[in-house]
C-alpha cells in the first residue's frame, strides 16, 4: 500500500514537473513554430539563478526575480538578433537555435566554469503526507504547480491576450489585419516561453546537479512530450506529460530504468511515424 502510494506521488511529481519543464517549449515550438533546440539551455540558465543570486549577495527570495530578469534579457536579445528572422522557417530555426544552444552553454561555462554548483534546498527534509514520508520541497512545488496550471488554464481560455495569441498562431495575416501587432506579440510570447523554461530550471535546481550541460537532459524528453501530445494546446501538453512522465516512472519502477527509457523512446518513435500530429490535435 505504502509502495503504491509512493509510486503514485512520484508519478504525479514526474508528470507535473515534466509538464512545467515542457511548457516553455510548448509555447515557443507549439505556438511560434520555432523548433527551439536551446530550450534546455534556458532551463539550465534558470537553474543557475540561485548561483547568480548568491554571487550578487542577494537574499534567496530574490532568486525568482533574478531568474526572470536574467532569462528575460537574454531571451529578448535572442529574439531581436536571431529568432525574429526565423518565424515560418521551422527547419532553419532548428539550426539557428542549435547554434544558440552551443553559444549559451559556452557563455555559462565561461562565466561559472564547468564544475558542479551547489544549490541548497530552501525546504529540506520530509513530512508525513497521506501516511508516507515525502520531501517537503516536492509537496510545496506540487501545490504551486497545481495553482499555476489552474490559473494558466483559465487565463488561456478567457483572457483577451490569450485569444490574440491563438488568433496570431492560427492566421498571422488576418491577425495583423485585425490590428494585432504580431511582431511584438511573438517577441513577447518567445520571451515569456523562455522565462517559463528558466523558472522550471529554478524549480529543479535544488534537486538536480547544476552544470552547463544539464539542458541536454531535458530537451529530448520535452520534445517527446510534444510529439505525443500534439502542438499548440494545453490539453496536448497535459496528455504528453502524463504519457511520457507516467510511462517512464511506472515502467521504470516495475521493470527497470532502462526499460522505462526505452519505452518512452519507442512510444515517441511510434507516434512520429504513425501519428506525427500527436494525440490531441485540433487540425
Amino acid at each position: 500500500m505504502e509502495d503504491a502510494l509512493l509510486l503514485g506521488l512520484n508519478t504525479v511529481w514526474q508528470i507535473a514537473t515534466l509538464g512545467f519543464v515542457a511548457l516553455g517549449l510548448a509555447i515557443v515550438f507549439g505556438l511560434l513554430r520555432i523548433m527551439n533546440m536551446a530550450h534546455g539551455e534556458f532551463v539550465m540558465i534558470g537553474a543557475y539563478a540561485p548561483v547568480i543570486t548568491t554571487q550578487l549577495g542577494l537574499s534567496p527570495w530574490m532568486q525568482i526575480p533574478v531568474c526572470i530578469l536574467s532569462i528575460g534579457v537574454i531571451a529578448f536579445l535572442c529574439e531581436r538578433l536571431l529568432i525574429r528572422h526565423f518565424y515560418d522557417r521551422i527547419f532553419d530555426s532548428l539550426l539557428a537555435t542549435w547554434g544558440l544552444s552551443l553559444l549559451l552553454r559556452e557563455l555559462v561555462e565561461l562565466t561559472f566554469g564547468r564544475s558542479f554548483q551547489s544549490v541548497i534546498s530552501p525546504l529540506p527534509g520530509t513530512v508525513l503526507f497521506l501516511g508516507i514520508n515525502y520531501p517537503l520541497y516536492r509537496l510545496v512545488v506540487l501545490a504551486g504547480l497545481l495553482i499555476f496550471f489552474t490559473v494558466l488554464t483559465i487565463w488561456y481560455r478567457q483572457s483577451l491576450t490569450a485569444t490574440r495569441i491563438k488568433a496570431m498562431v492560427a492566421n498571422p495575416v488576418l491577425a495583423q489585419a485585425a490590428g494585432i501587432k504580431t511582431a511584438r506579440l511573438s517577441a513577447s510570447v518567445f520571451v515569456v516561453g523562455c522565462i517559463v523554461s528558466g523558472l522550471s530550471g529554478l524549480m529543479l535546481a535544488p534537486l538536480i546537479r547544476v552544470e552547463p550541460f544539464i539542458g541536454l537532459d531535458y530537451l529530448l524528453r520535452c520534445f517527446f512530450v510534444l510529439v505525443l501530445g500534439g502542438l499548440g494546446s494545453l490539453e496536448g501538453l497535459g496528455i504528453g506529460s502524463v504519457g511520457i512522465g507516467g510511462v517512464q516512472t511506472i515502467v521504470g519502477t516495475i521493470s527497470s530504468q532502462t526499460g522505462g527509457y526505452l519505452t518512452i523512446l519507442l512510444v515517441s518513435i511510434f507516434f512520429l511515424w504513425l501519428r506525427p500530429r500527436g494525440i490531441y490535435s485540433k487540425n
Partner: peptide, 8 residues
C-alpha cells in the same frame, strides 16, 4: 537522471 524509482 531521475532516481525516484531506484530510491523506491
Amino acid at each position: 537522471n531521475e532516481f525516484d524509482t531506484s530510491l523506491q
